[in-house]
Write a protein that binds this DNA or RNA. Structure first.
Lengths: 190, 190
DNA sequence: ACTGTATGCCAACGGTCGTTGACTTCGCCG
DNA sequence: CGGCGAAGTCAACGACCGTTGGCATACAGT
């Protein structure tokens, strides 16, 4: 069994310092305004080190937006609970770290960012939807509907910070959104 | 009564050419990547004219994001139709011109953009919500919920262009979203 | 202890940006 | 037709960006 790895290289601490500084800068400033120089300053090293370890600003960004939606096993679940479980899971994802905020911020302005976002949608959300949507041919559409509500709430709550949305408790968000998500997944097509 | 205005100044045609080029550039590139030089090139004039007429890039942007949600009169409406009417109205707004796309794109990255977006929410959407939400104290929260679903759909459909969302027909979008919006406005708090 | 290599800093490059001020051209009014 | 202000062009500025190559330093293997 492998315990917590000792750094293989002396530079690993610097590498992760850069990565963490980059996460925060990209999350709060977006791709264009997050400068390599500012990230390096935050990490306490020279800008040239960023280039050495990540090749380019684009390469650093690619390392930052490595996201894993990481759905729990839903196969044994009471189907009526799908909405609650999914909304709760998404809230956890958004509050755990900044990577989704980064991806949304950048995906809206930057082409390679929105490519990545479409890719996450297609390779992680849609397959998950196939698992519990009755008609698989409909899975894409239902996944898109769920995404619209979940991303929309994330947008007004965590990015735009509309006061009433940002101030809502977790429980209230779940209480309001879960029935919507539940319907998008299980309801007959209207 | 005032007919269509004759240009008061010779420069008005240039002014509006700049404004239209700016609308498109800001909408498709976001604030940072939309350069004054590119906007001027699109408008067929010198970059310095942009500064003469709008003072600065920030001033030009402020002129671009003058948005009017322009709600129809809902007071005489069957309350059961609120969802359908509102979703239809929002689809019209998003498809009519690019200003909302611009505002969303920029609001996600730029502080003055998100300020403006919060302002539109507070001064246009919330007051409209007060008109048809039973408990006025709840109007802010319900307006935020509606905004989350409407902005979320606009995001995946018009900005991120998730294929299943972008390919949905207007009727399907209305059919799926209207019940959600209807519930956010009229349902008991869960 | 010596040496090769990994790690880090420094200074500078070419490019692009927003912005400015001086200069030229156009069009109207007397 | 002459003059004058508006409209537009042009070249340049200072700043900042991503990126590069050379040089100093610290470390690990022998």
């Amino acid at each position: 069994m492998t315990g917590p790895e000792r750094p293989r290289r002396r530079s690993d601490v610097t590498r992760t310092a850069i990565l963490e500084a980059a996460r925060e800068r990209f999350a709060s400033d977006g791709y264009e305004r997050a400068t390599v120089r500012a990230i390096a300053r935050d990490a306490g090293i020279d800008p040239s080190m960023v280039m050495r370890y990540y090749g380019s600003k684009e390469g650093l960004f690619a390392a930052v937006i490595d996201v894993e939606l990481d759905f729990p096993d839903l196969s044994e679940l009471d189907p009526d609970q799908l909405g609650v479980v999914l909304v709760t899971h998404f809230l956890d994802l958004w509050e755990r770290d900044t990577v989704l905020r980064t991806l949304l911020r950048v995906g809206v302005t930057n082409e390679s960012g929105s490519d990545r976002l479409r890719q996450v949608f297609a390779t992680q959300l849609v397959p998950a939807a196939r698992a519990f949507v009755p008609d698989p041919a409909d899975a894409e559409r239902r996944a898109a509907l769920v995404a619209s509500q979940v991303l929309g709430m994330a947008l007004v709550r965590y990015v735009l910070k509309f006061a009433p949305a940002a101030d809502m408790s977790r429980e209230d968000v779940i209480g309001w959104l879960a029935p919507t998500v539940q319907r998008y997944i299980t309801a007959e097509t209207p």
